[in-house]
Simulated assay, not measured.
Amino acid sequence: MQKSTHFFFKLLELLIVLCMVAMVIMVFGNVVLRYGFNSGIDVSDEMSRYCFVWLTYIGAMVAMREKGHLGVDTLVKHL
C-alpha cells in the first residue's frame, strides 16, 4: 500500500512538471506568434490557464502529503 501511494505521488509530480512545461511552451509560442507574425493561437490562453489551475490543485495535494506549506515552512526555517 505504501509503495503504491508513493508511486501515485511521483506520478502527480510528473504531471505537475508536464503542466508547467506545457504552460511555458504555449505562452512563449503565443507571444512569439503575436509579436513576430501578428497572429496567435486562441486556445493557448485558455489551455495555459487550465494547466495553471490543475498545477495549483495537484501541487496542493503534493504539498499536503509532504506536510509543507509555503508560508509556514519559511517561518519555521527562519525561527
Score class of each variant (00 low, 15 high):
Met1Ala: 12
Met1Ser: 13
Met1Asn: 10
Gln2Asn: 08
Gln2Cys: 12
Gln2Met: 05
Gln2Pro: 08
Lys3Gly: 03
Thr5Ile: 15
His6Ile: 08
His6Cys: 08
Phe7Gly: 03
Phe8Val: 07
Phe8Asn: 08
Phe9Pro: 03
Leu12Asn: 02
Leu12Gln: 04
Glu13Met: 07
Leu14Gly: 11
Ile16Arg: 12
Val17Pro: 02
Leu18Lys: 06
Cys19Asn: 14
Cys19Tyr: 12
Cys19Lys: 06
Cys19Gln: 07
Cys19Met: 12
Met20Lys: 08
Met20Trp: 10
Met20Asp: 03
Ala22Trp: 04
Met23Asn: 11
Val24His: 01
Val24Thr: 05
Val24Ser: 04
Val24Pro: 00
Val24Ile: 12
Ile25Ala: 13
Ile25Arg: 10
Met26Val: 01
Val27Asp: 04
Val27Tyr: 10
Phe28Asp: 06
Gly29Asn: 15
Asn30Gly: 02
Asn30Lys: 02
Val31Met: 07
Val31Cys: 04
Val32Met: 12
Leu33Met: 07
Leu33Glu: 04
Arg34Ala: 08
Arg34Ser: 05
Tyr35Thr: 09
Tyr35Leu: 10
Tyr35Pro: 03
Ser39His: 05
Ser39Trp: 03
Gly40Ile: 00
Gly40Pro: 01
Ile41Glu: 03
Val43Leu: 02
Val43Pro: 01
Val43Lys: 01
Glu46Val: 15
Glu46Phe: 14
Met47Gly: 09
Ser48Pro: 01
Arg49Met: 14
Arg49Ser: 10
Arg49Phe: 11
Tyr50Thr: 04
Phe52Arg: 05
Trp54Pro: 04
Trp54Ile: 06
Leu55Met: 12
Leu55Phe: 15
Thr56Pro: 05
Ile58Lys: 00
Gly59Asp: 00
Ala60Gln: 09
Ala60Cys: 14
Met61Val: 11
Met61Gln: 02
Met61Asp: 02
Met61Asn: 01
Met61Ala: 13
Val62His: 00
Val62Gly: 01
Ala63Gln: 11
Ala63Ile: 05
Arg65Met: 02
Gly68Gln: 13
Gly68Pro: 02
His69Lys: 12
His69Ser: 10
Leu70Phe: 15
Thr74Val: 12
Leu75Cys: 08
Val76Phe: 10
Val76Lys: 09
Lys77Glu: 07
Lys77Ser: 06
Lys77Met: 11
His78Glu: 15
His78Phe: 15
His78Asn: 12
Leu79Gly: 15
